[in-house]
Amino acid sequence: MKAEIQRRRLNPAPRAWDLLSIALSVVTADFAARRDQSPDGWTREIEIDIAVADAPFWSGQAAALAEALAFLTTDRWTLRFHEGGFLPTPPRETVRPTDDCVVLLSGGLDSLVGAIDLAAKGRKPFAISQTVRGDADKQVDFAAKIGSGLVHLQLNHNANTPGIQETSQRARSLIFITFGVLAATALKAYHDGQEVPLFVCENGFIAINPPLTGGRLGSLSTRTAHPEFFARLQDVLDAAGVRVKLTNPYATKTKGEMLKACADQTLLRTEAARSTSCGRFQRFNYHQCGRCVPCQVRRAAFLAWGTVPDATDYVYKPIGKDDAEHAGFDDVRSVAIALAAVKADGIDSWLGHALASPFIQDRAALLGMLERGLGELRALHQTYGVK
């Protein structure tokens, strides 16, 4: 990863390199600390010592970072910083890309739409991917086909720990965003003193990730683009003087609305089914399961879009089938219970405190988006006869 950045002769800001050291340490600890060994089977207490180039500054941000991580992973974090961190010598002939923003390109449907829209609106995004087995080739292909072809950089943290690794991997969000921050601070616009937008494109329903039932923790699914995590991490970036603005332009849009409003419908129709949304993609030998919450949101979005049939090869397609692998599967039941609860008691009762964060400023817009997102899921369950 570091070698690839240096091979491309990029020169990220020193505190962006420090943030990379922090993110690598966090993601490695996330792998090593197993949730099933914690007292409640989920919440962990994690303490890590991290070498950085500017230990006094980061020591002052330790509490803020720990709070951001606590929200992201629902764990208790203690971070300690000391000198000796990696800070490479700038390349002799630095390359400063002239792109005007950075976009995370994961191989997922939302990031595909986001990159398409940015290029269609005349932006020149630098596409950053976190290389994931099963998605690497499509990341390259998507970048080549969007606009006149995007400048694209694939990075991989290669974190590994001995023994059995924790599979939830909630901290991976931090490392992916950090890759984007590194790239943003290497752009010519950044070196010219400008603030660089970093686009993390995710539909609002998954970004908010409302607990579907009372027994389902929000962190059972990713919180990569949740407004609170964004705001907490943005505060740290601002304190560091890192002029990168985290932005999710689809925070108040459902996935179906993203598909319908995509600026290049021809390209989207061709590539949408190739994208990945599944939370269990690797577990099913690089096939999408069709029944996890992200898959259900994806399938509901295709129905709402209505332009082309969903040609995705799902492992469990008929989710209304009355057995444990389909309608009886936990995620399908959780969505069904949520839909029933909203119908019986209203959305405010079902949501509880999900939108109570002081970091949420546009509650009415988010509430409307969640209602529309539930409507898309309701249509999916009715289509497949989920009861």
Rank of each mutant, 00 (worst) to 15 (best):
T266K: 14
I116Y: 06
H287L: 06
L65F: 08
Q130M: 15
P210C: 13
T252R: 10
A338T: 00
L118Q: 02
M258Y: 00
Q154E: 15
G85D: 06
D117N: 11
G214V: 06
K138R: 09
P358Q: 05
L351A: 11
L220N: 12
Y190G: 00
S219I: 03
S148A: 11
A64L: 06
A354N: 13
G346M: 06
F229S: 00
T276E: 12
E166V: 07
D323H: 14
R92E: 09
S168C: 12
L155H: 07
M258D: 02
A340C: 09
C278G: 07
G114Y: 00
A354P: 13
A115Q: 00
G385H: 10
A136E: 13
C201N: 06
T178N: 03
A66K: 03
T224I: 08
I22C: 10
L79N: 01
G134N: 04
V181Y: 05
T131P: 14
Y316D: 09
P358E: 07
V103T: 14
G214I: 04
D348C: 14
K138T: 08
A51S: 13
V242K: 01
R96L: 04
K343T: 13
W17Q: 02
D49I: 06
D345K: 10
F199R: 00
L380N: 01
D310G: 09
I175H: 08
D75K: 05
A23R: 06
L19D: 02
L112S: 04
G85V: 02
G85Y: 01
Q139K: 02
E47I: 04
A16S: 10
H226I: 01
A356C: 10
G41P: 07
Y316H: 08
N11T: 08
A51G: 12
D345R: 09
E257H: 01
